[in-house]
């Protein structure tokens, strides 16, 4: 069994790397079969939606094209708390649920405001010499996201 500490560290490291916009570093934490999504339930229309869905290649392309876009340059700080870790030894995977708070800090003056809360559902591959993210679903509670954001959570 992989130690819970290693799994926790993978999740926390992913947040640190995204906060520092080290996108290559983040992708290094991901399995080649990695899939990423941001989803939410929309009560106004009683439907699910996926606001972002990408595989690992799509995430890389998204990160690579960011400099060509006009974006809000405020920084995001992602606070994750790992709630549960369930390991499946036969499948060599772990499923985790973490709570996410993302704070946005403006460049001008440095005011920080809460941007979004939700839960992060990760599937982690334990088949290699270190745990890797196999899938990440950011399940948002927050749906009023101001002017939005170009960088995934």
């Amino acid at each position: 069994m992989t130690s819970k500490t290693l799994i926790d560290e993978l999740i926390y490291r992913s947040a640190l790397l995204m906060d520092s916009k080290d996108f290559a570093g983040f992708l290094d934490l991901c399995d080649p079969a990695f899939n990423y999504s941001i989803t939410a339930y929309i009560p106004e229309i009683r439907k699910e939606t996926a606001w972002l869905e990408q595989n690992k290649e799509g995430m890389k392309l998204l990160f690579d094209t960011l400099p060509r876009h006009n974006s809000d340059h405020a920084s995001l700080s992602r606070h994750l708390t790992v709630y549960t870790v369930e390991q499946d030894e036969a499948a060599k995977q772990a499923k985790t649920i973490s709570f996410l708070q993302a704070f946005k800090t403006s460049l001008d003056g440095g005011a920080t405001e809460l941007f979004a809360v939700g839960k992060v559902h990760d599937t982690i591959s334990l088949s290699g010499d270190k745990p890797l993210l196999l899938s990440r679903n950011v399940r948002l509670e927050t749906r009023l996201l101001g002017i939005g954001f170009h960088i995934p959570l």
Binding site: I38, T49, W51, L52, T65, H69, N70, S71, D72, R143, L145, G146, I147, G148, F149, H150, P152
Partner: peptide
């Protein structure tokens, strides 16, 4: 056009 889409964020930033 979603909140994490390529265009809408730019329009709203504008």
């Amino acid at each position: 056009w979603g909140p994490f889409g390529r265009n809408l964020h730019e329009d709203l930033l504008g």
